[in-house]
């Protein structure tokens, strides 16, 4: 049971939503946007999240649609992970989200909610980081699109009152060879020791990671090393680890030493698969 009370709003337009947020702030309220809502409910129950005004954004037009437009795949941030998996417009994204939580939970968790969540794995962002996606951010003066690598640095960088409305992926990325691997300590459901998403574009490998550090990331420095074929595969993997961001997680899922061991082997597996041929 959530111990605190909140007001509940369900606006119908982006403009109404943003203005509502700012008017609530003016009234000294602490509003939160509500998409899938799973984090607000679970963390709210533990008093780790507080709000006195919930703005449910699920009635916004196109917030739940997947469509193609002008060379882009456009996915509403409110689309459930199950829908991403079943409609499968971007196989790398579908495969990656199919490993998040469990199927029933994925019926509720939204793509945008996973990307913007407090729980730091945010694995749905990995395919978007390596496909140079655009994020449609709803702001006070309308919808603006930004390259993901400009507005996502460990976590999404939003101004107060802004929210993620949709995601655009250049269609040329949708069918590239890819690898998506999630390694857990045990079982088929749960948080990762390491999740890797990689794709090959123009004979170069791009890779993004979750579970290694307390944030998901893509490292251009590591990619430069992966793609330097003057070294052996094993040497490239070993040399890339010097560019690993800090800190490396050291928790109940696995020690930092064990995580790096698993990471090293998972990168090796990913590179072997991607360098094995054009149609992995």
């Amino acid at each position: 049971m959530i111990s605190f009370d909140f007001e509940y709003f369900k606006p119908k337009t982006i403009q109404e939503t943003i203005h509502l947020f700012h008017s609530l702030v003016t009234k000294k309220k602490t509003p939160l946007y509500y998409s899938g809502g799973t984090e607000i409910i679970t963390l709210g129950r533990l008093n780790l999240v507080y709000t006195d005004a919930v703005i449910d954004i699920n009635a916004l037009p196109e917030y739940h649609t997947i469509r193609f437009s002008e060379g882009y795949l456009v996915i509403g941030a409110g689309v459930s992970l199950t829908k991403v998996e079943e409609e499968n417009p971007f196989p790398l994204l579908s495969k990656t989200v199919s490993e998040i939580a469990d199927r029933t939970a994925r019926n509720k968790i939204s793509l945008g909610g996973n990307i913007c969540g407090d729980i730091f794995y945010r694995e749905a962002v990995l395919p978007l980081l390596i496909s140079d996606s655009l994020l449609g951010i709803a702001e006070i003066d309308g919808l603006h699109y930004y390259p993901i690598n400009k507005v996502f640095n460990r976590e999404i960088q939003l101004q107060k009152g802004d929210f993620l409305f949709n995601i655009l992926i250049d269609q040329t990325y949708l069918d590239l060879p890819f690898v998506s691997m999630k390694r857990r300590q045990q079982w088929n459901v749960g948080y990762p020791l390491v999740t890797i998403c990689a794709l090959k574009k123009d004979e170069e490998v791009r890779m993004a990671f979750s579970g290694v550090c307390p944030f998901p990331f893509r490292s251009v420095e590591m990619e430069d090393v992966f793609n330097d074929k003057s070294y052996s595969l094993e040497d490239r993997v070993r040399r890339s680890l010097q560019y690993l961001p800090k800190p490396v997680l050291n928790d109940v899922e696995g020690s930092s030493e064990y995580r790096i061991f698993v990471l090293q082997h998972t990168i090796l597996d990913a590179l072997q698969k991607l360098e094995g041929g054009p149609n992995v």
Partner: peptide, 9 residues
């Protein structure tokens, strides 16, 4: 569609 009712308002 199955939903966990503890995760819904």
């Amino acid at each position: 569609v199955p939903m966990k009712s503890c995760l819904m308002l």
